[in-house]
Amino acid sequence: MKRVKFYYDAEKLAFKQIVTKNSTKIGYAMLFLLASALFGFLCFFILSNTSFFETPKSKLQARELETMKLNYNLLNRKIALMEESLSAIEERDNNLYRVYFNSAAISNEERRAGLGGVNRYKDLEDFNNSDLIINSSKKVDEIMKALAIQSVSLDEVTKLAKQKAVLLKAIPAIQPVKNEELKHMASGFGYRSDPFTKIRKFHKGMDFSAKTGTPIYATGDGVVRKADGSLSGYGNHIEISHGYGYLTLYAHLSKYKVKAGQKVKRGDIIGYVGSTGRSEAPHLHYEVHKNGEVVNPLNFYYGSISAKEYVLISKLANQENQSLD
């Protein structure tokens, strides 16, 4: 049974029944519905942001998102390690390899120059986290470009190394007569007394005194340019062109073991000591030419004698005695 409510009317001194208007009832109902809706929305918001009511699909998406974040961080770490390793290689390339082969270093601006032209990353725009994706793509492209430049540089260094090996073999680096077959160092490079005129004149090479028939060795790899007696005063002589501006001359030979146009290697026997031409006694007159100028052969014996022997020969060669030719 519906309860009836009353109120006391003090003016009329009587109890009257409370009658609720329909508009008030409607207002209460609307207020209740609004409060219920707000309460429901609040509950839904709270529950949707907790893992209590997650669906399997939302859980899978969350797991995939975490995996993508982890992979992105791992990718950036690998990129950083690649950049560090590449920088170390570039450092050795500029300050070791290229210095050794006397080649100009590659500037950091050239190695790290940007990739110009059209927008290469337009297809990666307008996505969630596009900035992160574009930034990573740029780093990878820069590393790939730097690797390409470094690869070309190493190819160049390899080529320089091969040329360097050929150059080192070509440089006159040993004595043309072995120490055990020498009588003594007769005369060195510089002004000496002429054995015939007794006038002091410039001696263009070194004289190695040895008995007739002592083997003479090519001091570097090269090609025999001449093996004849065409130069006045030198008698039987040999000229070897070593390339790179180097030429050696061996004079007063008793006989040859090579001929013009023949390739020889350092240490090959090319002839034998004699006393042909303008010579006072059996010996080898040896000259080294660099770019058309005579140079002191004493500076090129690092490949066959010890430091002690070099000091001794240097003292003997620098004495202003009489030459043998």
Rank of each mutant, 00 (worst) to 15 (best):
45 F>D: 01
58 S>I: 11
64 E>T: 05
61 Q>S: 13
19 V>A: 07
74 L>K: 09
38 L>S: 01
34 L>I: 12
5 K>M: 14
79 I>Y: 01
8 Y>W: 09
35 A>N: 04
29 A>F: 09
57 K>Q: 15
8 Y>H: 09
16 K>Y: 12
11 E>D: 11
17 Q>Y: 05
84 E>M: 07
13 L>R: 06
30 M>C: 14
16 K>S: 08
72 Y>L: 11
37 A>F: 05
35 A>S: 15
66 E>P: 00
87 S>R: 13
81 L>H: 10
21 K>V: 13
36 S>N: 07
5 K>L: 15
81 L>I: 13
62 A>V: 08
22 N>E: 15
28 Y>L: 13
7 Y>C: 08
20 T>L: 13
36 S>R: 00
15 F>G: 03
32 F>P: 02
21 K>W: 15
12 K>V: 00
14 A>V: 11
8 Y>T: 04
77 R>H: 12
45 F>H: 04
14 A>L: 15
53 F>R: 05
17 Q>F: 05
10 A>N: 05
39 F>G: 03
70 L>A: 10
70 L>C: 02
36 S>G: 11
88 A>L: 08
86 L>Q: 02
43 C>N: 06
49 N>L: 01
70 L>Q: 08
80 A>I: 07
13 L>N: 14
12 K>S: 02
27 G>N: 15
40 G>F: 01
52 F>E: 06
6 F>N: 07
28 Y>I: 10
74 L>T: 03
25 K>S: 14
61 Q>E: 14
67 T>K: 09
47 L>H: 00
28 Y>V: 08
70 L>Y: 04
46 I>P: 00
63 R>G: 08
41 F>T: 06
18 I>S: 12
54 E>W: 11
43 C>P: 00
38 L>H: 03
43 C>H: 02
78 K>I: 14
24 T>F: 14
66 E>G: 03
83 E>L: 10
49 N>P: 00
85 S>D: 11
9 D>Q: 01
6 F>H: 15
61 Q>N: 11
10 A>L: 09
41 F>K: 01
67 T>W: 04
70 L>E: 05
58 S>R: 12
37 A>P: 00
83 E>N: 05
10 A>F: 07
43 C>L: 13
26 I>E: 14
